[in-house]
């Protein structure tokens, strides 16, 4: 695109983000402050993920962008079009062919490969934020590894509902040290963070933090002995591909409240249907 550098960001900004990324990988789960820049998209719409993608993306990469697991949601379409425009990279919807996958709210169902990088868009990177609003305080809590309040919060849910009532953005502990917000993915996806083959990068543009989970890293969802972590299950299967393993979206089909369940990961669903046909 005329007048802008490859992948939009200038080289000095990319270098700053790249240095921060190396630190993020070296300290898994720790939120590295970085000089987040304005992007030509609004904050909260993926500017953190986009800055990370822009800093790692090369001309030979193949990019996939998903939102809610789908390639065709408007924000995914818009971000994909942005990188086609400013970086001229090839894009794909096939999870298996992409080197870089930028995502909002989901991890693809298909296992990722060692040479893939998954970039998460993160709205609120601080897992302790809703317990303690002050950044000065939460920073200290991480420094002192003082995570008792988080356990208390989760246990209050159990006392009240009989369950932990956090269903997405479910906190994890990375390599036994940092409590981390995995972004608002459903807790269904949390097990995919553990010992993944792929590098996972997290970018929060408005909050100016980035963090990482290297491949093959221990990632545990917080829980209790008498209330072990568990993921969502559906009685239904996908109405399109029949999957019983994937995260299902509920689709209202008529005014009478008729509904059906379909895979949230559109590429996974399409691939299965292709194999079944």
């Amino acid at each position: 695109m005329n007048g802008y550098n490859f992948a939009y960001l200038d080289e000095q900004t990319k270098r700053m983000i790249r240095r921060a990324l190396l630190k993020a990988v070296a300290i898994p789960g720790y939120q590295v402050p970085f000089g987040g820049r304005e992007m030509p998209m609004p904050y909260g719409w993926g500017t953190g993920g986009m800055q990370l993608t822009a800093s790692i993306l090369g001309a030979g990469d193949v990019l996939k962008v998903i939102d809610q697991g789908a390639d065709d949601t408007t924000n995914a379409v818009s971000i994909r079009a942005f990188f086609e425009r400013v970086a001229g990279v090839e894009t794909t919807t096939a999870t298996g062919t992409a080197n870089v996958i930028q995502t909002r709210h989901r991890i693809p169902e298909a296992p990722l490969a060692p040479d893939q990088i998954l970039v998460f868009q993160v709205p609120i990177p601080e897992p302790l934020r809703f317990i303690e609003p002050s950044e000065q305080e939460t920073r200290l809590m991480h420094a002192l590894e003082e995570y008792g309040v988080m356990q208390v919060k989760l246990y209050e849910d159990i006392a009240r509902y009989g369950h932990i009532a956090t269903t997405y953005a479910y906190p994890v502990k990375v390599d036994g040290r940092y409590v981390m917000d995995p972004s608002p993915i459903p807790k269904f996806d949390n097990p995919k963070l553990h010992q993944s083959d792929a590098l996972m990068l997290f970018g929060a543009g408005r909050e100016k933090r980035l963090y990482a989970i290297p491949p093959y890293t221990r990632v545990e969802s917080l829980d209790f002995e008498d209330h072990p972590f568990e993921i969502q299950r559906w009685d239904e299967s996908c109405a399109l591909c029949g999957s019983r393993e994937s995260f299902l979206d509920e689709v209202i089909t008529d005014d009478a409240g008729g509904r059906m369940f379909v895979c949230s990961d559109t590429d996974y669903c399409l691939t299965r249907r292709g194999e079944l046909a």
Binding site: F6, L22, V25, L57, G58
Partner: peptide, 20 residues
């Protein structure tokens, strides 16, 4: 090619740091 060469080298550094 400062833009594309540094991107390529960075990805190797990122991979190296990710797989000690």
């Amino acid at each position: 090619d400062p833009v594309h060469d540094s991107q390529r080298l960075f990805r190797q550094l990122l991979a190296a740091m990710s797989e000690p």
